[in-house]
Simulated assay, not measured.
Amino acid sequence: MKPIIVTSQHNDQVKRWRKLQSRKGRQSLGTLWIEGEHLLEESVKAGWRVRALIVDQSREAEHRPWWEKRNKNAPVYFLPSRLYRTLADTETPQGIAAEVEIPKGEADRAIPAEGVLLLLDGVQDPGNVGTMLRTARAVGAAGVWLGKGTVDPYNPKVVRAAMGALFHVPIRMIDLHEELPRLRSAGYCVVGTHPRGEHVHFDVSYPGRTAYLLGNEGRGVDPALMRWVNSEVSIPMPGGAESLNVSITASLLLYEYLRQHRGGH
């Protein structure tokens, strides 16, 4: 397929790609913007459809081997460096990007029959959410569910922090007030954290169906959601720290679950 050369910032495709810089634009188009061969490779491996490849024309020779080998049907657009840099989200652009379709299955309301879930209530830092997605992939989590107020998982900063995990972890945007009762009815044990939790995290035996509920970096979990929590656990901090970063907390929770259930991995 012959590359399409685009030189004007007023081109319709360029205008479309600019929309992907906002959550509203991503939602309306059903696509997201990703950069670099690593993320492109991960999206292809996961079966996400690449709608368009965008290449900095000055670095075409550098990236041609990848897109000639891995790109099947998506049109390839060549942009001059000055125009490409206006679209790139990073300070040092890698010279290749793509518009990728967000799978429609994201809206599936099915509850996993087994496994561990991360439930996020108003977690706003993109780096935290990206790191949690990365950890969730590492342990083989059944999914990450994002409640209202949580940063868009397709935000470029989340995508970069997740290092490709975004394409492999089942993600849902939900209303926790609706979904927590459903999880409880499906037999899930919903676990919250608190510095003075009733049980020390490492002393708890977690069932196969476990959902960890984590809250906003400043205010924590909405108190109205705590009625659905089976138990609150504390993570020991003998060094005297008041709290842990929410993504570190998630890692400790997930890896303790994995330790207890590692026979199945």
Rank of each mutant, 00 (worst) to 15 (best):
K148H: 02
N216L: 02
W67V: 09
F202D: 02
E179F: 10
D125R: 03
Q9A: 13
H38A: 08
G218K: 03
I235R: 00
A97V: 09
E99S: 13
F78K: 10
N155I: 09
V55M: 12
K15E: 07
V100R: 04
A250M: 13
E106D: 03
A98H: 06
K2A: 10
L20C: 08
W66I: 06
I54L: 07
Q21E: 13
D89C: 15
S81N: 11
I54M: 09
S81M: 11
E198Y: 12
V116A: 11
S205W: 12
A113F: 08
L39K: 09
N216M: 10
R259I: 06
E62W: 08
R109C: 00
I4K: 03
L32C: 14
D152E: 03
V50R: 12
V200K: 06
L225P: 05
T193R: 02
S28K: 08
I34E: 10
T92V: 15
R49K: 14
H177K: 06
W67M: 09
V159N: 01
A74Q: 05
T249A: 15
L225R: 13
H168V: 05
Y255C: 00
R219K: 04
T86S: 08
T150F: 05
Q21R: 11
R59L: 12
L39A: 10
E106P: 00
A138N: 08
R182P: 00
L53P: 11
R26L: 07
H168R: 07
S28R: 10
P236W: 02
N216R: 03
E217V: 01
L53N: 02
K24E: 14
F202W: 11
V221S: 08
H201M: 15
K19E: 15
A52Y: 02
Q94R: 10
R49I: 12
I174T: 13
P236H: 00
M237D: 05
R82P: 04
R109W: 11
Y77F: 13
W228I: 07
L183D: 07
A107C: 08
S234V: 00
S58Q: 12
W33V: 05
Y77H: 08
P112I: 07
F167T: 03
E232Y: 09
R64H: 07
V151C: 09
K157A: 15
T86M: 03
H10Q: 04
Q13W: 12
D152M: 04
P223F: 05
R262H: 14
V190D: 14
S231A: 09
L20D: 07
G25K: 00
K72Q: 12
K15Q: 12
Y77V: 11
I5T: 15
P181N: 13
L83P: 01
A107R: 11
G215S: 11
L244C: 10
R109A: 04
R160E: 01
L83W: 08
R137S: 05
I4Y: 03
I174F: 11
P181K: 09
G147Y: 04
H199E: 15
Q260S: 05
T135A: 12
H199N: 12
A46E: 07
Q124E: 13
A107N: 05
R59D: 09
L119Q: 04
W145V: 03
A250T: 03
K45C: 06
P112F: 07
